Amino acid sequence: MRDVHKGASAGHGEVVVVTGASGGVGRATAVAFAARGARVALLARGREGLAAAADEVRRAGGEALVVGVDVADAKAVDDAAQQVVDAFGPIDVWVNNAFAGVFAPFPEVTPDEFRRVTEVTYLGYVFGTRAALHHMLPRDRGTIVQVGSALAYRGIPLQSAYCGAKHAIQGFNESLRCELLHTGSGVRTTMVQLPGLNTPQFDWVLNRMPGRARPVAPVYQPEVAARAIVHAASHGRRREYWVGGSTAATLIANAVAPGFLDRYLARTGFGSQQDDGPHGGPGNLWAPADGPHGRDHGAHGRFDDEAVSGSPQDWVSRNRGRMGAGLVAAGVGGLGAAVTAGLRRRGRRGPSRGR
């Protein structure tokens, strides 16, 4: 499936590929790039979601190329990348974001389900990265953004397949980054670790628990993640970005006291990931959530009432260099003031005498 939509101000921007672009974080990210005048290739399976995402990209001022693809199919991902190059030209940014999940204790996840989650959530990133590098390495430029999670470092109950895949992405990306640095390549790779987000995934995830799946609070709007991803694409030299205070707190706590977090999550991790109410749709593990005659789910889930649209920690992460310069300047200024005050006091006392 391929369809091109042009916006009024698009046509000369960067070329961006976003996987999992039909909903959630991928959808919000595609629109955020479009607002900068980018030409955005939208890769996903769902026809309804892709069509609506393309329309949003166009309204935001970008140009959209719709490519229906299952990222677990390496050949299909390679073909999709070539379609992007044929339609838009060289790829500047590739955002790996597509994923799948099963919400259940590990013994209740079948081998086929676990394999499918791994193929989409981990190997989908591997195949996307390989396709991007095929086009970026000869030009010696481009940025690959791996959309991660606090769960890339800290596993939680009920999401064993997803957590395992996110941990695998972390290791894969670090290995690739070292290789690119070794060769002095101009291609960059970076990872953005996200918190709990208000996306439709919790209504379409395959769920075997008694309650509806939900993100662990605090919950952030997907636009918070999108801003961080767009920033990371422009600052690919940074190896990693943490989004949300909860992500920072989780990763720091896990580095200091992982055993304590094991016990804490054993007590709280089941209840904090469920709420009352009927389950959502049939899940999107094997087929798109919008189905052949379904509806568009958009970028937001059902948690708008509690989700926050900003994150001070995210601002700090995106402006770390500026804050560092500010702290240095403040330190130098303070030192200068202290020296000046000391000289004034010394002048009032007269010249000091040596011993």
Rank of each mutant, 00 (worst) to 15 (best):
K6W: 13
G7N: 03
T19K: 02
A32F: 01
V40W: 02
E48C: 09
A54W: 02
V67M: 07
V69Y: 05
V69Q: 04
V69L: 04
V77Q: 03
V85D: 04
A87D: 07
P90I: 10
V93Y: 02
W94S: 12
F99C: 10
D112T: 11
T121I: 04
V126L: 15
T129H: 06
L133N: 13
H134M: 06
H134R: 14
L137G: 14
I156M: 03
P157R: 06
S160Y: 14
Y162T: 14
A165K: 01
A165C: 03
A168C: 06
Q170H: 14
L176G: 07
L181Y: 05
H182P: 00
T183A: 11
S185R: 09
T189P: 13
T189M: 03
Q193T: 01
Q201D: 09
L206P: 00
P215F: 03
V219M: 02
V219I: 09
Y220D: 08
E223A: 13
H231L: 03
H235S: 02
E240N: 05
V243N: 03
A248P: 05
F260E: 00
Q273L: 04
D276L: 05
H279I: 08
G283E: 05
N284Y: 11
G301W: 02
R302E: 04
D304K: 00
D304H: 01
P312L: 00
R322L: 13
V328P: 00
V332G: 00
G334L: 05
G342K: 10
S352V: 13
G354D: 12
